[in-house]
Design a protein around this nucleic acid. Structure first.
Lengths: 332, 332
DNA sequence: GGCCGGCTTGAAACCGCTTGCAATGACGGG
DNA sequence: CCCGTCATTGCAAGCGGTTTCAAGCCGGCC
């Protein structure tokens, strides 16, 4: 069940080198040998062993794809785009799930053992130290959805979370909300930190707006719901900027359950524009991340870093925009 | 940037074989050499090249994971469980996205080139010919969420879709619905065919119940919504069994938009119990697939088939159950 | 006709690791 | 004290490819 180079060579009556050459482009083979080899190969159903060739070429064409929250619907889009994008370039994704807090060092070792050509970390909650560990191991790495840095240590592709916070603040102010709040994910996530910073920063110039902040324990529906239930015990704000659509939907649920209406009693704006946000019974006003662009850039960046390992770390940020639906009151 | 067996051997002052043996368990090495080798290895930061060893052992410990609908939230659960399950057994998933109808032969070739040890096809919409192609290529393969067969050609793990159709029918009859209908996914999917067969079959014995069927163009929110909008033009049934939760949510949306209520005017029961089904603003009554069990069994099956390639094809089905929420009227 | 240069080709070394085999050495029993 | 046994070890031959190198071949030119 394994037809090899040698088999093809024998059947075609040529040397193994000849066969190898007809399958590596840019190598010098005469049309005649090539056709002999191709005939033999197709008769035998030969396909070169990619792993064996990786031994000498040093390229496996495999890219490690690392994610840690498999429960956020956004990751669906991410996986779809990543796998397709990689496949289009003849690369294969080796998937790593960091859900259960495994030791980062383990995954680094594992990916080195499998000699992936590069690594893409797709997470807005992992610290940058994580991507750095790959870089330290000599692997080209891109942190997608990572934190912006003026002097980055590794490639970062994503959005400007501070600007998103500002954008949310503006959206709320423009609609005349006077008491607003941030409802974020875990404080430890850089995305949370940046979003709240942008949000508060933008509102620092509006003394007439009252602002507060609280944090859910995770980027999940339940956490968002629980947190909003808490908030409803007290005097809630007029509108909330939720650090993630899942949180927003959880909050929405809590508000409905409390017999209040959105946006009548409370306004809500999320972040991500996950697929479900447009479902009519949700109709979440949110800030859209340009996922496709981010992923495309991440792949492009990892590929060019594989080709030129010396390439200095780079940050690529893509603009977000507010998607207006039905959880904020209309603009005046 | 690649420390090899040889480097470790030299530093430890032993032969390459000795080093190799200390890293393969079950090999005979004295405690003394072992410790020398381990010391040298850790000093050098050595990790054996899994791909190189696969050349001689014939095992890569990589499993191909094939999916074709990256937009159904259920796949999130599937990916999470699969990656974790594989990681727990020291295996790695090589992900293949079949979204864009690529030639099956291509993926077979690709997975053979990468010498995966086995393949898991996770899809309820792919024809079984697909899994068969892998088998024909000599690869151990399990079709998860595939169609039940008494004399299967490949391993199948999943649910009894016919029984699910029956279960849905019973749920509707028990609640006294007199005009019911099936709202399925694409006719070409075996899962659709089986579900409708079970549904209609169960109702064949109830002449007092009026039953009909229609099919959405895909397993998506939009398709479900569009199909329900069509149905609402005419006289809709009292309750629908939707072949997938996504369809059900789309239908739910269409019904709301038409100013009707669920379950007041129309009842809805879905299938899958995707994560969003329990969101309060959806509250979908549905039939739950035991995804975790299915995936666990799929992994177990592929692993044992790798160990014993002669193992005859097997079918493992797991029972589903109705999850009662708020889209069907209460039991009398 | 002879010579030069370029395109093809095969032999052989190597990529990093495993493993069969034979040699070595330690150890216990007779 | 000698010998057989057995665990340990190193050598060397692969695993399935790629690639360097030198040799072979061809046509074209003088």
């Amino acid at each position: 069940m394994g037809v090899t180079l040698k088999d093809v060579a024998e059947r075609a009556g040529v040397s193994r080198s000849a066969v190898s050459r007809t399958f590596t482009d840019g190598a010098s083979v005469s049309a005649k040998t090539r056709s002999k080899v191709e005939k033999a190969a197709s008769e035998l159903g030969y396909a070169p062993n990619a792993l064996a060739s990786s031994l000498t070429t040093g390229r496996t064409k495999m890219i490690g794809l690392i994610a840690n929250n498999f429960h956020n619907p956004l990751i669906l889009e991410v996986f779809d785009l990543f796998t397709r994008g990689l496949q289009d370039r003849g690369l294969r994704p080796l998937l790593v799930n960091l859900s259960d807090a495994t030791d980062p060092a383990d995954s680094v070792r594992m990916l080195r053992q499998y000699s992936v050509d590069g690594v893409i970390v797709a997470s807005s909650t992992l610290p940058s130290s994580f991507a750095l560990a790959f870089k330290a191991a000599g692997l080209p790495v891109v942190h997608a959805f990572g934190r912006y840095a003026t002097a980055p240590d590794v490639h970062v592709v994503g959005i400007d979370n501070v600007a998103c916070g500002r954008m949310a603040a503006e959206a709320l102010v423009q609609r005349g909300y006077g008491r607003v709040a941030f409802l974020g994910g875990p404080r430890s996530a850089t995305s949370t930190q940046d979003r709240v910073a942008g949000f508060l920063g933008a509102l620092a110039g509006c003394p007439e707006v009252h602002v507060s902040a609280s944090y859910a324990s995770a980027y999940t529906f339940d956490a968002g719901r629980t947190e909003m239930q808490q908030l409803l015990q007290d005097t809630p704000a007029e509108a909330y900027f939720c650090g993630d659509d899942l949180l927003a939907v959880g909050a929405l649920s809590a508000i409905h359950e409390a017999g209040l209406s959105v946006p009548g009693d409370i306004g809500l704006i999320g972040l991500n524009d996950m697929e479900m946000a447009r479902w009519q019974m949700i109709g979440l006003t949110t800030i859209r991340q340009p996922v496709a662009q981010i992923i495309d850039a991440a792949i492009a960046l990892v590929v060019s870093t594989i080709e030129d390992p010396g390439r200095p770390p780079e940050t690529r940020l893509f603009p977000c925009r507010v998607v207006e639906r039905q959880t904020l009151r209309a603009l005046p």
